[in-house]
Every structure is written in structure tokens, then in C-alpha cells.
Design a protein around this nucleic acid. Structure first.
Length: 599
RNA sequence: GCGGGUGUAGCUCAGUUGGUUAGAGUAUCGGCCUGUCACGCCGAGGGUCGCGGGUUCAAGUCCCGUCACUCGCGCCA
């Protein structure tokens, strides 16, 4: 007989009755009735009820064990008597009568309880992550993650993509996020950088003629965290040669739609081939965001023209000085109290905006200060234009265009949530396309790249030479699902002449390009195919599929919000010897475990 | 860097306009219990009310500061 088990804890059923078996697992739960003891034995696969009565030598041993101790049970499979079958348990028709027990590992008092869905402080959960990971929810999330990655890999390979690995110790690049850096021992004063993404390497693989690349790629960015952002994360990174934007879309839509359909648990998914394509400018107008949640039915409208001449002086002044007024419908709010509208305004002010105006409407009757000053006839014109009914309220975000767009977008989300308009039974995908190539940098008072500088401008060289740079669009696109940016990609600029010209418009010389991006620009001078790709974020995909609000719920060993590993103690001070080896001297002494008493 | 929220038993939380010995559930420990499956019953131990200062006759409660965790902004694709 195997040393530890003949079956796992989900394997036994009525067909095994009478067999002598050996099971190993954790003591999930105990029910002690004095003369008879029930133990739910748990492993990765499931639960099996173990029974020990006064005839069993296992009784006193199991009785004395704390939960989460690990045991091996030798016993006999018995059918449960009628009335004692547990229909909620896959193994609920049988139980194992314990003849003997071997204690493999005893558990001390636990910092968190495995057999409970109770919420624990993240600090506790992360410090004892190995215990937390035994709990059903996170355990399932991590399994889901593995299955999603396996499915993605299979789908990519089936489409003729080839999987590669690229360096982790790479060169720092001047643009983009802050790099995690690694000091070089052999070359004093120099550093590697962990890749923010394998961007250049995948493009070089295209130059190398591999045609279709993909990788489950680890990426590192030393920036502050969010609920959906971890400093280390994974992307389904892919790149294709001799493709247009259309080809990239056609390649990845079936992969994403397929994997979502496979794991969505019955939620509807935008079918491959029908992801809506929304130009960036339209997204900013209608949704106030470049990552719109299309489940939210509310559409923002520009109503600036209506306030050019208005009794409502504030809006008239804003429009008159180049600002805009955006309207966010609040359908069916005739029953809502004044507090609902005032609370929205308070919320907007708390978010740092000047305020959120509103008009109420009950049975056709307008209410609120804006309606009063602007006049019911003029309000009716706006309502007619927006197609609003006689019981619909309307919020207004007014100000400089950037501020108004942002407020309108946030208000759209908030109104949608408050009114319960966002269905949670679907995954709605879209592409955001036609991102601007350049933008005006208010701080630096100059034109700069608004996205990735290596994207091909639409219209290529001719556009760069003849158009206002701020009007030029890029072959740059994002995939958005339910308000989360899942992926960013582009058709790349593989032409050195266009590259130099694009950088020139952003104020960089040929020498700047040559010195900062020498590897890539050299490669493009030695025969580079047109190419493009994208990189869907795997953690966010799993997060959406697991219906988790936080990315750390789908990472086995995540860093906390301040980028620390509470279990292993990273980051940590290193020895003077280690520092000397890599030619580093720290300026501030590393924080000691027990700091000297202050105050 | 900035703003919001939270911080009371190992854990989840309650704690009145400031008032006398800070509670419950759960976990732990002890006892009882032969059919439970979130078993049940009895009992016990367990508290720097995050930390520091202040106001007050009196602070878990009010004020100031600070720390930790978290959410958001900045930042970041």
C-alpha cells in the first residue's frame, strides 16, 4: 500500500464500499460526540468524512489534534446509513471508518480559520498566505488562474504562435514606468532593469523572422499600487509580423472571447468578431473615459451650445471662456429625494471637482437651480435632444474640457451604480482605437508622445510632414472589458525614417534616438518586417473571471499595497558584503527590526 | 507626495450625550455527549481599546499628532 494514500479525498463513492483505503489530508473540521468522532478530512480535491468510535484506536489521537493538523487515515469505506447521507458533499454517500491514524504534522493555534469564509485582515492573510491559500475561495482562484493560463497557451499555439522566453535582467529604458533596477557586480556603477514588458525583445524577435511570438511574460513596474495593479504581473504578450491592425484584432478576439466563455460560469461574453471599436475621442465624450464600462447604459452628451446664452450665469461663463458642459442622464429619478442629488454634488466636491450640477424632473416638471435659471423651455430643448423622459434627472459636469470629461466619466459610473443600472451577468468587450499620437504637455510646454513612441502614426511619414501633430492618430489600441483596461497594443513603427521624424516632432534629436534606443533602431536598419501586437493582462483577466475586486486575490503570493512581502519579509536589508560586491553604498541606514525608541 | 476609510480579545464585531467591573460570537483550554456534517450543552482563560500627547473629577468615546492596513488622486498602460 502506498505510504500516504490509495485515494484522494474526493475519490471515494458507493462503489468503494467495503474497501480498505488510506487517505491523507488536513483535519478540516471535527464533530466530537463523545463516543463517536467525525473528522472532515480535506485535501486539494475534496472532503471525506472520517468516523472513529470507541472501538477505534484512532479516536483519542484524532480527538487531541487541532484543526489543520495533517494525518494519514487507514480505514474501511462504509456506506452511510439512510438519513445520514450528506447530499451537499460529493463523497456524502460514504464515510471512512478509521482503524488507525498516523499524525504527519501537528498544527498550532491558527491565525485564521480555514473552514470559514470569514474575511480576515489582508495583513494576516498575507503573512500566513500558505494557510490563507488553503481556503476555498483563494484556492479556487489560483486553480482558475492556472487553467486560464493553460487555455490561453493552448489557444495561442493552436493559432500558430510560438512561445519564447526573453531576458529578465534587461536594460533600463528611459520612457514609461519607473524600473526596478538590479546592480551589476561585474560592471561597477551600472544596473540591469527588470522588464516593464518584453517590448523591445518581442519586436526584435519579429525582426529575427519568427513571425508569431507569444509569452506568458512577467512584467515589473516600480509604481504605486491600486486594487487592480501589482508591481509584478503577467501579460499574454504577443506580436505578429506582416499584419494590419485588423489582423491583430482578428487574432486576439477569439482567444479572449474563447477563454472568457470557457471560464465565465454562464455570464455572457461579447462574441469574437464583434468587439465594438470606439475611437478614443468618442470614448472620452460618451463615456468620459478611455476604459468605458459598456455594461453601464448611460451616455454622456456635450450640451455646451445650450449654455452659450443662459440665465444660468456660471455655465454661460464656463462655455464663454472655452470650457464645456457635459450632461449625464439619471433616468427614472423622479422618486429620488433631493438628498440623492445633493449627495452626488458632495461626492464630486470630495473627489476634488468644483461640483456636480443637476436638474430634477418629476412628471415633466423641472426642478433645481439650474433649471430655474436656464428656463423650462430651454431645459425641454436639452431633454428633447438627449431623448430624456419626463421622470429623468440630469447631472452636469462643467469646466475646462479635461476636468469636465473626468468628472462626467466618474459621475456616469457613480450614477450607474447608485441606480443599479450595471448588470453583473456579462463581460462586455470593446476596442478603444485611434489614440492620438501626440499630446501637449502642459508642464513641459511642449508636444510629447501621448502613448508608446514606437507606434506607427496613421498616415505614416506623410501625416508627420503635413498634419498638425496634435491631429495625428496612432495605430494604437486598447482592449477594455467591464471598465478594466485589459490590453494595450499597437502596430509598431518599423521605419527608422518615420521614427526619427516622430521623435523630432516630440523634440528629440536623431542622436537622442540613436543613443536611447540603439538596439531597436539598428535592427530596423537591417531588414524589419511591419509588425504589431498587444499584451492582455493575465491577472486582470483572472480577476474578472473570478469576480474579485482586487488583483491580490488571484496572485498566490502577492505584495501588499506598499509593495512588501509580509511572509518572506521583502524588501529587506542586505549584508555589507553583498552591498560591497555590487558597489552600492546606501545613504540612509536600513531600518532595523526594532527601531531605537523615539519621541 | 496628497485625500478618504478602518484600527476594541488570536479572529469578526458591539460598546449610548464622556461615567463606575469594556461585552457577544468564534477560536483556544477543560468537562459532558454514539450519527454529526457551521453538531450540541456546561465552564475557564484571554484586552497596552494601534501608539504618543492634550482637555476633563472622569476618555474606548472629545481634540492634536503619529503609525499600520486599505481605497482613491498624483504616478502608471
Amino acid at each position: 500500500m502506498h505510504a500516504y494514500r490509495t485515494h484522494n479525498c474526493a475519490a471515494l463513492s458507493k462503489g468503494n464500499v467495503g474497501e480498505t483505503v488510506r487517505l491523507s489530508g488536513w483535519v478540516h473540521r471535527k464533530r466530537d460526540h463523545g463516543g463517536v468522532l467525525f473528522v472532515d478530512l480535506r485535501d486539494h480535491y475534496g472532503l471525506t468524512q472520517i468516523v472513529a468510535d470507541e472501538d477505534s484506536p484512532a479516536l483519542p489521537i484524532l480527538d487531541g489534534l487541532r484543526l489543520e493538523s495533517v494525518v494519514t487515515i487507514d480505514g474501511e469505506v462504509k456506506a452511510r446509513a439512510e438519513g445520514t447521507v450528506n447530499p451537499n458533499l460529493p463523497t456524502g454517500e460514504i464515510e471512512v471508518f478509521a482503524r488507525a491514524v498516523t499524525v504527519q504534522s501537528t498544527a498550532d493555534e491558527l491565525p485564521l480559520i480555514v473552514n470559514s469564509a470569514e474575511d480576515y485582515p489582508e495583513e494576516t492573510r498575507l503573512k500566513y498566505r500558505f494557510v490563507d491559500l488553503r481556503r476555498e475561495r483563494v484556492h479556487n482562484n489560483i486553480v482558475l488562474r492556472s487553467n486560464v493560463i493553460a487555455s490561453l497557451r493552448r489557444r495561442m499555439i493552436d493559432q500558430g504562435f510560438t512561445e519564447f522566453q526573453t531576458p529578465i535582467l534587461a536594460a533600463s529604458s528611459p520612457e514609461g514606468a519607473r524600473d526596478y533596477i538590479v546592480p551589476s557586480r561585474l560592471h561597477p556603477g551600472t544596473f540591469y532593469a527588470l522588464p516593464q514588458a518584453p517590448q523591445m525583445f518581442k519586436q526584435l524577435l519579429m525582426v529575427a523572422g519568427f513571425d508569431r511570438y507569444f509569452q506568458i511574460a512577467p512584467c515589473f513596474r516600480d509604481e504605486d499600487l491600486r486594487a487592480d495593479r501589482s508591481p509584478e504581473f503577467y501579460q499574454l504578450d504577443f506580436e505578429m509580423s506582416f499584419v494590419t491592425q485588423e489582423d491583430v484584432f482578428n487574432a486576439i478576439e477569439p482567444v479572449l472571447a474563447g477563454v472568457f466563455e470557457e471560464f465565465s460560469g454562464g455570464k455572457s461574453v461579447t462574441p469574437a468578431g464583434s468587439f465594438p471599436r470606439i475611437p478614443y475621442a468618442e470614448a472620452m465624450l460618451k463615456y468620459g473615459s478611455d476604459k468605458p464600462d459598456l455594461r453601464n447604459p448611460l451616455i454622456i452628451s456635450d450640451v455646451s451650445d445650450h449654455f452659450q446664452q443662459s440665465g444660468f450665469g456660471l455655465f454661460e461663463k464656463i462655455v464663454g471662456t472655452g470650457g464645456v458642459v457635459r450632461a449625464i442622464p439619471a433616468p427614472g429619478t423622479h422618486e429620488k429625494s433631493r438628498k440623492f442629488f445633493d449627495d452626488m454634488n458632495d461626492w464630486a466636491r470630495k473627489e476634488g471637482f468644483a461640483g456636480l450640477g443637476y436638474v430634477t424632473r418629476k412628471g415633466g416638471e423641472f426642478g433645481g437651480p439650474i433649471a430655474k435659471n436656464h428656463g423650462p423651455d430651454n431645459m425641454a430643448k436639452i431633454y428633447a435632444e438627449l431623448g430624456l423622459g419626463e421622470n429623468d434627472g440630469l447631472f452636469f459636469a462643467a469646466g475646462k474640457q479635461g476636468d469636465a470629461v473626468k468628472l462626467a466619466g466618474a459621475a456616469r459610473t457613480r450614477v450607474g451604480e447608485e441606480l443599479g443600472l450595471i448588470p453583473d451577468d456579462r463581460f462586455e468587450f470593446c476596442w478603444i482605437v485611434d489614440f492620438p499620437m501626440f499630446e501637449y504637455d502642459e508642464e513641459a510646454k511642449k508636444i510629447d508622445f501621448s502613448h508608446n513612441p514606437f507606434s506607427m502614426p496613421q498616415g505614416e511619414m506623410e501625416a508627420l510632414e503635413t498634419q498638425d501633430p496634435l491631429d495625428i492618430k496612432a495605430w494604437q489600441y486598447d482592449i477594455v472589458c467591464n471598465g478594466y483596461e485589459l490590453s494595450s497594443g499597437a502596430i509598431r513603427n518599423h521605419r527608422p525614417d518615420i521614427m526619427y521624424k516622430a521623435f523630432e516632432l516630440a523634440g528629440y534629436t536623431r542622436e537622442d534616438v540613436d543613443s536611447n534606443f540603439s538596439g531597436m533602431i539598428e535592427a530596423f536598419k537591417l531588414g524589419a518586417p511591419p509588425h504589431g501586437g498587444s499584451a492582455p493582462g493575465i491577472d486582470r483577466i483572472v480577476m474578472l473571471l473570478a469576480d474579485e475586486p482586487n488583483i491580490r486575490e488571484v496572485i498566490a503570493f502577492p505584495l501588499n499595497q506598499r509593495a512588501q512581502d509580509l511572509m518572506m519579509g521583502a524588501p529587506s536589508a542586505v549584508s555589507a558584503r553583498q552591498l560591497r560586491d555590487v558597489h552600492i553604498r546606501t545613504i540612509e541606514p536600513p531600518k532595523q527590526e526594532k527601531p531605537a525608541t523615539e519621541d
